[in-house]
Simulated scan of single mutants.
Amino acid sequence: MPGTHALAFIRFALEHGVLRFGEFKTKSGRVSPYFFNAGLFNDGACVGRLGRFYAEALVHSGLEFDMLFGPAYKGIPLATTTAVALAEHPVLAGRRIPFAFNRKEAKDHGEGGVLVGAPLAGRVVIIDDVVTAGTSVRESVGMIRAAGAQPAAVLIAMDRMERAGSEGNLSEHSAVQDLEQTYGIPVISIASLADVIGLLDGDQELIAHRDAVIAYRERYGI
Rank of each mutant, 00 (worst) to 15 (best):
A153W: 01
M67Y: 03
V141M: 06
V18R: 14
D129A: 10
A100M: 11
V124H: 13
E205A: 15
R52T: 06
E105N: 13
F101M: 03
G70T: 03
A45P: 00
A157G: 10
R11K: 12
S166Q: 14
G168K: 06
D128Y: 13
G165Q: 10
Q150F: 09
A45L: 11
P2S: 13
R160Q: 09
P151Y: 08
L86P: 13
K104R: 14
E180R: 10
D108M: 04
G168F: 07
N102M: 04
V91T: 10
Q177G: 12
S171F: 09
A55R: 11
V124Q: 06
G75F: 04
L14T: 10
L120P: 04
G51N: 11
E218C: 06
A45F: 04
R163L: 10
F41Q: 05
A215N: 14
L7S: 15
A45D: 11
E23R: 15
L199P: 08
I207M: 13
L78V: 00
K74P: 12
T80Y: 09
F65Q: 08
H60E: 15
F101A: 06
E88T: 01
A87I: 00
V84T: 13
I197E: 09
I10Q: 12
T82M: 07
D203T: 03
G62I: 01
A149W: 06
S61D: 08
Y220T: 09
R96A: 15
G17D: 07
V59D: 13
A55P: 13
I185Q: 05
P186L: 03
A83K: 01
V116Q: 03
D129V: 01
R163G: 12
Y73R: 12
F53P: 14
I156M: 12
A157V: 02
V187C: 11
A152Q: 14
I197F: 04
G142T: 10
S32C: 06
G221C: 09
D211W: 00
R217S: 14
I188S: 07
A87H: 05
V137G: 08
T82P: 11
T135Y: 02
G112I: 09
G39K: 01
V176S: 06
T81A: 09
A72T: 14
F12R: 08
G221K: 13
L115H: 02
V114N: 05
G94A: 03
D159H: 08
L120A: 00
A106S: 15
T135C: 10
I144N: 09
R96L: 12
S174M: 05
A147I: 03
D201V: 00
G198W: 08
C46S: 13
I156N: 14
G142K: 15
A215W: 05
L179F: 02
A6E: 09
G184S: 07
T81F: 15
A146H: 08
L92C: 11
G221N: 14
V114C: 04
R219M: 04
P2R: 08
R20S: 13
A208H: 12
F9K: 05
V84Q: 01
P33R: 10
A100V: 07
F101W: 04
L78G: 04
F65V: 04
G134Y: 05
E139Y: 05
R160M: 07
N42W: 00
V154L: 08
V18Q: 03
P186G: 05
S189T: 07
